[in-house]
Amino acid sequence: MSKVNLDYLDELEAEAIHILREVAGQFEKPALLFSGGKDSITLVRLAEKAFRPGKFPFPLVHIDTGHNFEETITFRDQMIDRIGEKLIVGYVQESIDEGKVIEQTGKNASRNALQTVTLLDTIAKYGFDACIGGARRDEEKARAKERIFSVRDEFGQWDPKRQRPELWNIYNGRIHKGENVRVFPISNWTELDVWNYIKREKMELPSIYFAHERDCITRNGQLMAASPFLNMDEEDIVERKKVRFRTVGDMSCTAAVSSDATELDDIIAEISASKISERGARMDDKVSEAAMEDRKKGGYF
C-alpha cells in the first residue's frame, strides 16, 4: 500500500487540529486564550483549519493587562472582524479596582503576575471547562514536562507530581466540577516551527514583531520600550533604537531585541542564528530557576 511521510509542518499542523477537535468533542464550554502574540494567532489559524466552514465551538478570551502594545490591540480587533468569532475580554484593571489584586510598585513593577487572578475570575465567570493556550514545550523547562491536556484544580493550580499519564494520541479530558483543563495544541512546536508556519500560511502579525524605530531604555542588560507603564527615573536614558519583539506580553516585562529584520525571511534567519532563547527576553522568567514552575502551580497560563 502507499505510504506517506508527512512534512514536519504538516505533521505538527495535523496533530494540533486533532487536539483542537478533541477539545470541541470532549468539553461543554471551552475557550481559546488569545494574547495577540504569534502563538495564539497560530492557534486561531489552526482553529480555522479544524472547524471551517463551521464556526469555532469556542470564543476567544483575552486577558487585558491594560499595559498592552497598542499595535497588538489594533491587530486583535481587526482579526476578530475578519474571522467573525466571539471575543471576551477580562480586564486586569477591573481586578485592581475590585481590590482583588494590588498593583506592584517599584522600578520593575509589572502587571504580569496579576493576570493570573483575572484569568481565573474570567474562567469562573463564564464557567469555562477547558482553556486552549499557545504554550510550547521548548519555551521553558517546566513547560517541557507539561501534558497537552493539563488538568488544573479549582484554584487553577498545576500539580506537576500528579499529572495524568498521556498515552498515544488519546487525551483524557474528564474533570470534576470546578476544575478545568489547559490544552496546548502546539506543545510540540518550536519557535522556529511557528515562524516557518506563519510564513507558509502567509499569516498576518502585529507590526511589533518586525523591526521598527522605538524609544527604548536599557534595564538589567535588556532593551525595554519606553512607555507610561514603565516606572522610569533619571537614571534611565531614553534612546532611539531599531528593534523588534520576539514575544508579545505586557509592555513592562517584554524586552526588545536590536534587529533589522523587516520581513519574515529576515526573522527566520535571525532566529536560526540566534543564541538567545525566546523567553530569555522575558523578565518574568529571570527571577529564579523555577520561576515558570511556580507560576504555573499558581494558575498561570
Binding site: R137, D138, K141, A144, K145, P160, K161, Q163, S187, N188, T190, L192
Partner: peptide, 8 residues
C-alpha cells in the same frame, strides 16, 4: 516525569 526536548 517525562520531559520533551526538541532539536534539529
Amino acid at each position: 516525569d517525562v520531559a520533551y526536548k526538541y532539536f534539529q
